[in-house]
Amino acid sequence: MDEFEQELRQAFARQPAPPSLKNRILRNRRSRAPQSHAHLWQRLAAVLVLTLLLSGGFAWHQRERQRKGEAARQQVLLALRITNHALNHMNQQLAAHGRANQK
């Protein structure tokens, strides 16, 4: 280590911290401790509410999809029943018409 480096070592010796620094750190630490617990509970509550909202929304969405699907199925069944009825009616008419022609 040369002379300049020795000078640097002397120049860069640690400086004493301000006398009030330790008290401020300890005061902040004390004031933070209960706050951090309060923040933790607030965060947990927020997460819980958000989870409930999301799962509720998802359940409602699923139920709505099922309801719409069931309604569409009923409509299709009704349409099939009407078609079936119309075809039966037509079939009966054709059969009656055929019998009349044979006579």
Partner: peptide, 19 residues
């Protein structure tokens, strides 16, 4: 011991930050 750590190292941390 947090308080002891502050006592021992505050000068080091402060000097590093200052420089």
């Amino acid at each position: 011991d947090f308080e002891q750590l502050v006592d021992e190292h505050q000068s080091m941390v402060f000097s590093l930050a200052l420089r």
